[in-house]
């Protein structure tokens, strides 16, 4: 069992490691010209966006699966497949649809402590 005897330390509020570092960012994708964006929004309003969950070294595989099951309602096997995609490929598309809905999912993932982004399909 872990020895957690000294509780008085203020670990989180006072950094123990000096300096800050950038959060991991995936490879930036190329921005598309504005005209192209507008065109897509006009002609594919409902399926043009997706919610992508990214790998991080912190989250437990079982927890990620748990979130995919409880929040999105995926069956266990599908939730595990998506979790493994995140783990091995670094990312998985977990939903697609209208932009507002994808933003809601992204916000929910952030609430769960997972890193998600809104992506144009």
């Amino acid at each position: 069992m872990v020895d957690v005897a000294q509780l008085v330390e203020h670990w989180l509020v006072v950094p123990v490691v000096a300096g800050s570092s950038p959060v991991i960012h995936p490879t930036m994708s190329l921005t598309q010209p504005d005209e192209a964006l507008e065109e897509r929004e006009l002609f594919e309003p409902d399926r043009a966006w997706s919610t992508v969950v990214w790998n991080d070294p912190v989250n437990l595989m079982t927890y990620v699966t748990h979130v995919f099951r409880t929040y999105f309602g995926y069956p266990r096997r599908e939730a595990e497949r998506l979790m493994l995609l995140v783990h091995h490929e670094g990312r998985a598309t977990v939903a697609s649809g209208p932009r507002e809905e994808m933003e809601r999912h992204t916000e929910a993932m952030h609430e769960f402590g997972l890193w998600a982004t809104v992506e144009r399909i």
Binding site: V23, H110, E119
Partner: peptide
Amino acid sequence: AVHDRLFPVAYRD
């Protein structure tokens, strides 16, 4: 950096 982990970017680009 801590803040970015708790409230990560939603739009990468």
